[in-house]
Design a protein around this nucleic acid. Structure first.
Lengths: 391, 391
DNA sequence: TAAGTTTGTTTGTTTAATAAACAAATAAAT
DNA sequence: ATTTATTTGTTTATTAAACAAACAAACTTA
């Protein structure tokens, strides 16, 4: 029940102007007026306000098109910096980005002891290290975004991580107290979906699905231009969608869960069993494919087949504009897409002609970490008054 | 990129005031000011505007609470009337309602020939009949809402109806030309979801799922307080979600589709086979249950079991606040809910404690028709200027 | 050199929300 | 019965933001 007044109008229009500027800079006031259909005078007054906030600045005149030369405005992408963290199962990926998501610094750490007690100091250390890489700027470090493999509720508490067994960890409060800045915690797939929507394969897509395929399968859902988190924050647990109601028993309690058939973990297990190996690596699989090892290729086909079954369910559920697949294996062996596509084509409803695109992740390993950072950026740009300590 | 100005503010606040008034009338200006946290003077000026539009009126003074008596305002629910139509597989249900969804007139027609050519004149006749039941009012018949069993795209064209085989029928334009009023066409499950959210089991629920179980299974999805239609309008085809990837072949092209296991149609077929009958009716089944026929009860349990399997998938996907089941059979034999709940409980992820409620449809047979009508009501109340012919 | 165009600012108007003052009506206290 | 405090709803003046129109500056083109 948010009522509107004059100040709402100003904030609302300023957000539109800034958005257009970010999308199309360098740009003149006159062009902004044309694009937004706001009055020239309104643009003039709003740009003053944006310049006072150091979010934009003038870079001199542009080309004339038969009259006075325009003064070009640009987005000040270095008005502040953000730290993004991807807390994976066996790694911590940390980045420092500007307000456009450009990476200035990155660091990857391999987790040995995944207990919370062991991770916490390492995490803080990595964040401090990244923060030190930020140049002087009006707003300094505007916040920290964390994407994590596990259940995060709508209060941003980490409720449970299936692999490292963290329980009810309030990392948000802990980091806020440590660093005194905005901290946003999100599920790994949600963050990935957001990253791909802002910077990657589904840029500006209204309805998109992000599929994170690894040890399990996680799904990030974007509907009606928004991330859909669910009532408590637990949407997108489609790895535990049953595709064989009387199938294999899963640790979650369900039977025939999709990720028991279509995760990278399952594929790796199958191939290592096939080859009589204890363990098989990405590299080994890629090599086996390159030498046309038929057993492995057949296994890969089955992998794509099972993915296609679940994806058909997703398409029937969401009628999405696009689906993004995040899987190191598929990204380095895009041939899997063929069996995925074939399976979907043979199964998708013939009643209505559904249009959908399937893309590989453009951000790849950085989808989650950039998504996490972008939550913070968006939060910062939506904050009507940038009342913060100047660094 | 909708910029805001003063008139936006007025329209926006007026909508909030009217919404509060509809929810809480009779109500005074003073109480509206408190509830909306708008200034008293603003409420005074806006109520003048709403009274000019005939959407509200005064009904005299109320009880004083220690000062001047308040003037009570009420919503003018008879400012106009709406026609709702449910175009089912073997019936046409038509209602006339006021602006609150109260039914003034209703009519049910059994379809014999379901071809478009046969239905069209009957449909028009039913609408005319319903319209004649409307009393004199400021706005007259404000529109016609149609819920239909089949694929409706985002342009509101009926793309395909699986049973009656209609193809690319632009009913919206046809009815608009015939009746010169707003016409809105929606999928049956989407309309039902909307009806239940406005008037029924999931009133004001932010994230809810409506399950229409009949010859097939259709799903209406409400997320982030909005109906989710999908990119083309084909979301919620979860009847064709595979729960057994190598299962029964479905007419849609997929295998192991949920509705092959958990639709009323399947249940009826199974029971009639069991009893060696050509055909079995709702009544017969209810009677068999009442006399504790174990074969039938077992079959009913299986029905609930299969529903529970798909519902577990839905909960894992959406983490909804509530799920509404629309099934004549379950509504008259709510015992089925037990096996549904048991199946879900034993299968739902133990990782995170998910809260969800499962309700029976409150609107029952009228869910779709009231949902269809409510789209028109909402459209009317959102129209900033009610520039229409007075009847 | 003159004419027309483009850009961005200035000026005054319009509109809707708000605060404050006010009048009317009423209940409760004395 | 009188006083006091309270509640309701209107009136008045103020504020803020968008806008239209006028304008000045800077530029291109003929």
């Amino acid at each position: 029940m948010n009522t509107a007044d004059q100040s709402f109008v100003k904030i609302h229009n300023q957000k539109i102007i800034l958005d257009q500027l970010i999308q199309h800079y360098p740009i003149s006031r006159a062009d902004l007026a044309k694009m937004t259909s706001l009055n020239k005078a309104t643009i003039s007054s709003q740009t003053v306000s944006l310049m006072e906030k150091k979010l934009i600045y003038e870079i001199g005149t542009g080309e004339s098109s038969g009259g006075r030369k325009p003064v070009m405005l640009v987005f000040n992408k270095t008005a502040g910096y953000v730290i993004g963290v991807d807390l994976g199962i066996n790694y911590i990926l940390t980045v420092l980005t500007d307000l456009e998501g450009n990476i200035l610094f990155q660091n990857s750490y391999e987790i040995i002891d995944s207990s919370y007690e062991a991770i916490k100091p390492i995490l803080i250390e990595r964040i401090v290290e990244a923060a030190q890489g930020a140049p002087e700027s009006p707003y300094g470090i505007i916040g920290i975004g964390v994407g994590i493999h596990g259940f995060v509720n709508n209060d941003q508490t980490i409720v449970f991580t299936p692999h490292s067994k963290w329980k009810d960890i309030d990392l948000k409060i802990i980091l806020e107290e440590q660093f005194h800045c905005t901290v946003l915690i999100e599920n790994e797939a949600n963050a990935g979906a957001y990253g791909e929507r802002l910077f990657g394969a589904i840029k500006n897509c209204s309805n998109g699905i992000f599929l994170s395929i690894g040890i399990g399968i996680g799904v990030g859902i974007i509907v009606n231009n928004e991330l859909y988190r669910g009532t408590q924050g637990f949407s997108g647990e489609m790895g535990h969608m049953s595709i064989e109601y009387n199938g294999k028993k899963c640790g979650c309690g369900n039977t025939g869960c999709w990720e028991l058939y279509a995760s990278e973990k399952t594929l790796f297990e199958n191939i290592s069993k096939l080859k009589g190996l204890e363990h098989v690596t990405y590299k080994q699989i890629s090599q086996l494919i390159q030498v046309q090892n038929m057993e492995v290729i057949k296994e890969l086909d089955r992998f794509g087949y099972y993915l296609g079954i679940g994806l058909t369910n997703i398409i029937n559920t969401f009628n999405p504009e696009a689906i993004v697949l995040r899987s190191g294996l598929i990204e380095s062996n895009p041939i899997v897409l063929n069996s995925i596509q074939n399976t979907i084509s043979s199964r998708i409803s013939q009643y209505a002609h559904q249009n959908h695109q399937i893309y590989l992740s453009q951000l790849s390993r950085k989808a989650t970490v950039l998504g996490a950072a972008s939550f913070v950026i968006e939060h910062f740009l939506n904050e009507p008054d940038h009342l913060r300590l100047m660094k």
